[in-house]
Design a protein around this nucleic acid. Structure first.
Lengths: 265, 265
DNA sequence: TAGTGGTCTAGACCACCTT
DNA sequence: AGGTGGTCTAGACCACTAG
């Protein structure tokens, strides 16, 4: 069909941009619905009278925006948006203590999802620069690291690495290769070091190929890296938790109250 | 030169992936330093014995990861990482009141950057769905909207839209097309409605082309959308601030303390 | 087996930037 | 003017997925 007229080769905008615009509008307006299949690349080629390169450039742009998903050997589809889990920043210590479960499990339950986890590795490593800085130790000093992949409904959701200073973790369950039933936070408290306060710092960025594989990310999905640092009452760092979230599955929430007023609902 | 031997056409991994890996490693190891120019696409073509398509696929992947930047008619360069501004979540009300300046200005100063702003538009609009929900009004109800672009050292940094319910903003300075010297938060307080508490919710995603243009984003840089909602003491929503941050220029920080203990440094 | 997206080649012309 | 990245064509072969 001569839809060719819909693309203007004399325009300032590239043919791929124009085609992407047409599809973007169709998707946002709902005239191409979530999960529906788009024409094949060869069909677009014929319909719009352009080369496959142009079609692919247009579709790839939409993939990067997270609007469509390509499935090799099958087709291209308007992306279904996954449900979002809300992660709340608050006193993790209180959160796990009231439920006697790891924080991740508590929040998953609040969102009606089934949590699980795979322990990836436990061992001693040299602390990377930023972790060392937060732990207030030398760069390259030895720390205990627990790496795990946390899942929601069996879908990878968070890559976690927890770094513990040797003075705290040496010879404890934190160095054990078994899963910690109560979660590391409870373990730390059991060692006689209840966290008194903490800081969270995070940034969003694009994942590297390894992270994209582990989290099974669609193309064009950013990750949010959150560093969570717990301190003792005497301001000694207890742990650095380095969590990497798939950005299309998580949102983050925080609250403040003025002065000492009671916290509202 | 026959660097050709460094790419393996029989590998499972694509030639573009292999080339990207080589360059990624070189960049991370520092053997290609920040700001340095890469060989041209035609040079890579010769050096590795592949077509320009392969070279472009490899370089484009690195662009998406934010590792390199292409400049048309000039060359391809290892990206310089911009300085990061840390945004702290806390009582915005307190923050501006102690400084008598907009929060953005206070935080910019803390980071040693020069803040400025362009007022994009002021007027009445229909509230989008999520804003209406937070303001506890009907979807499509009329609200007052102030849109502005906030800059650091004259570089676009944040796209902001603030939504005010009519009962609050009607006929006030909040509807004025002039810049608000003290910032909107001070204006709201001056109207007799000091915010008592607030919530922040945010997600990371890829920008759309318009957002990418306004924020002058490099390719492959995500944005962080933060919704900030302020409430009166009687839990009445005062405003929804919708801020869009360039993710490569901002990180976000939060703090918690256990119980009523004094806040540490 | 037929159709899909993934990869790759070997060209071409353009707009842009520097010297 | 000469080199750069941006766009585009017209093919080709591959690996994957369905019926």
């Amino acid at each position: 069909m001569a839809n060719r007229s819909m693309l203007d080769p004399t325009s300032d905008r590239s043919l791929a941009d124009q085609l992407a615009d047409i599809l973007r509008t169709a998707i946002h307006s709902g005239s191409r619905s979530q999960g529906s299949q788009l024409p094949s690349e060869r069909e677009f080629e014929n319909d719009y009278g352009v080369s496959r390169t142009v079609v692919r450039d247009a579709l790839d742009a939409l993939v990067l925006e997270g609007l469509v998903v390509k499935r090799k050997g099958f087709g291209t589809f308007v992306r279904r948006l996954p449900p979002v889990r809300r992660v709340s920043s608050r006193n993790r210590h209180d959160l796990h203590r009231t439920a006697d479960k790891p924080v991740f499990d508590v929040e998953a339950a609040l969102n009606g999802r089934v949590p699980s986890r795979q322990l990836l590795s436990v061992g001693r490593e040299q602390a990377p620069a930023d972790v060392a800085q937060w732990l207030e130790i030398e760069i390259g000093a030895i720390v205990v690291v627990r790496r795990r992949l946390q899942l929601l409904d069996d879908n990878p959701a968070v890559i976690s690495a927890s770094y513990y200073p040797l003075w705290l973790a040496e010879g404890t369950m934190l160095e054990s290769s078994d899963a910690l039933k109560r979660g590391p936070d409870a373990e730390i408290e059991a060692l006689g070091h209840p966290p008194a306060w903490g800081t969270e710092v995070f940034r969003a960025r694009m994942p590297n190929p390894q992270e994209r594989r582990l989290l099974a990310l669609d193309a064009g999905v950013p990750v949010v890296r959150m560093l969570h640092i717990d301190y003792t009452e005497t301001n000694r760092p207890l742990q650095v938790a380095d969590d990497l979230y798939a950005a299309d599955q998580h949102e983050f929430a925080f609250m403040w109250t003025s002065e000492e007023g009671p916290a509202p609902a």
